[in-house]
Design a binder for these strands. Sequence first.
RNA 1: GGGCGAUUAGCUCAGUUGGUAGAGCAACCCGUUUACACCGGGAAGGUCAGAGGUUCGAGUCCUCUAUCGCCCACCA
Length: 730
Amino acid sequence: MQENEELKKPYNPNEHEDLIYKKWEDSGFFNPDVCIEKGIADKDADYFSIVLPPPNVTGTLHMGSAFMLAIEDTMVRYNRMLGKKTLWVPGTDHAAIATQSKVEKLIQKEEGKNRHDLGRIEFLKIVEKFAQENHDTIVTQMKKMGCSLDWSREAFTLDEKRNLAVKTVFKKMFDDELIYKGHRVVNWDPKGQTTISDDEIVYEERKATMYTFKYSPDFPIAISTTRPETKVGDTAVAVNPDDTRYQKYIGQTFEIKDFAGERLSIKIIADKEVDPEFGTGALGVTPAHSQIDEGIAQRHDLPLKPVINEYARMSVESSLLKDKKVTEAREIVVGWLKDKNLMIKGEEVSQNVSTAERTGGIIEPLPKLQWFINVNKEFERDGKKLTLKKLMLGVIEKEEINIIPERFEKEYTHWIENLRDWCISRQIWYGHQIPVYYKGDEIYCGLEKPEGNDWIQDEDTLDTWFSSGLWTFSTLGWPHFAEASRGKPGPENDFVNYHPTTVLETGYDILFFWVARMILMSTYATGQIPFENVYLHGLVRDNQGKKISKSLGNNIDPLDMILKYSADSVRMALMVGTGPGNDTKISEEKLKAYKHFANKIWNASRFVLENTGSLQTSDVGSLTEKDQGTIKEYKEIVKDITSDMESYRFYLAADKIYHYFWHTFADIIIEDCKKRIKENDEADSVKALLYYLLREQLKLLHPFMPFITEKIWSLLPDSKNLLMVEKWPN
RNA sequence: GGGCGAUUAGCUCAGUUGGUAGAGCAACCCGUUUACACCGGGAAGGUCAGAGGUUCGAGUCCUCUAUCGCCCACCA
């Protein structure tokens, strides 16, 4: 047969995949407006919408991204085949500090310059070029994976539309006094020269020495610390109110004339947070350089005494310590204590050191004037008193949002309950500049710079998660939308047509960073939940179970794997058997297994088409009783698979269709039909059965293995439309 | 310190609501006038981490223990 000439050759995915993707793109069916226009989706049909978690433009896609894309594209294709108005919005994330610090490292290495050598405008040009290059690679990678994203709606977290959304939300929060500027001890990253939020800290376990000493010979209480250099900033010693050893000193103030060249005034206070069992049971309070101590200081009205500056150097007058790096200062203070016979002991302990996630810098808690989102402040909404925290908790408690797997709901709730105010200002250049303007003592927050020449905009930029928190609605046209346009097609009406989104699919590792913040931002700014379901996937590990990373040298590039095994095989290898919230191991054996499966599909299709000739539609009614029974059994499988798809059990659905195709259809049904063909027995029934089962299974397989199924579909004598817009069987 | 997950064949893992233990890879035997050797058939391999409990019935539910892993807190 002429039309099946292509099937005679072995399946070569590289030859077909790009061409098939082009066909899909040209069809316009990635865009729901086109689907409605062409009658693929009814204009009154349900919608299925999902935003792509925007990959960071810091780099290119890894196996974890491929996993995410496979799951999401499977969902999207399935729902499109159900006839829903299906929208998957693509985009990328500027990733603020991550991108900036990466570019800073690059120019330091290549040109020996830092960002200040270049200036804000010049530096940003380089960052933007870097971002653009990565963006382009990422887009290519997503197309290679077969993602049916609506490229006409592509967004970037730092483009103009998203900037408008950011400014609008900021102003709303500012006016509601949920955003405030405050002087507080923040996490300062001396390496990145910026504040970071609590969530951007990673703890590294290191060995340290815990020193126990007295401030002066006549000071009555010994204290312990791993950071003696900060002790020049102490203004109190806190003890537990019930600790009988120290009760007599509570309320007294001791003047210490010389502590490593500094004068200290130490008040003895009682605070129940102090653990009498730990160390000496007394805590030296350093209000300026510890967030816990800051809290104690506030309760007891203690003065703040900053002794470390932004460069992690000592800012005290003591000639011993002035301008010394904290690590040097530590040695100096230890030496001084030993000299003066004040050191009682030093023992080795392991402790968690706070480091900045993106730069690796050791965090120095410092008092700084910064912008915060107040998560505990009450505000009115529809006559009810709310806080952002309550808003975030409520939607999970009331089950407006369903998290899959369920166990993460507990983790989410626990995290919110312990949430502190979110520091959103960053001293970096790449990001959304804070929409606040100053003129003398005047302060103005607004979308545009106010009239008059003397207004100066706040130099800081926003935490990247501020803009990604708006992602579900900033990508759908908010704040520009009109309720009256519901049901009318076109991107300008997306917010009313597609929000709340149906599902958010992302890694469990960013549940707090991102998912929680989207819930906060969306419920606050739009009054709508951002999504109805959250599907969390796990990490992709290597076949030894190790986390995949460039530094470990076990990095697997999805593009290499696609080239070697096909995009369909990569997708299947990632999907089969990996339930939500579970990590998966990827190995070449697994990829090979699904490459074999693709080959199986190709060859079985060849066999069927060679034997069914120009048969077009299967007249299932004329089948023998036995063959009708086979189809009945098959339909049970379809029902089962559909129910798995509906319940987000893609890992099971993929496995079931794989097994049915190979071990029932190919191994049993085809083998049986071979005999019947040879004996020329019930030829019409055999043909109809084979053609029907092949054609139907291509539909089931399509969301998982879109390329090969679309290719074979195009070779069927009766394929008129693209398989991607065929109806899912029932 | 608090929380969560995992423990099933040599290896990697499935097993959705409790109903006679499954797949892939590896190893073993047989098969190539063939849709496919990127294959087919067959056989082998498991007191489902351990102990106790609920049940007519437990890999699945409950309790405890052990080992491994992750997250959160951060004891100064």
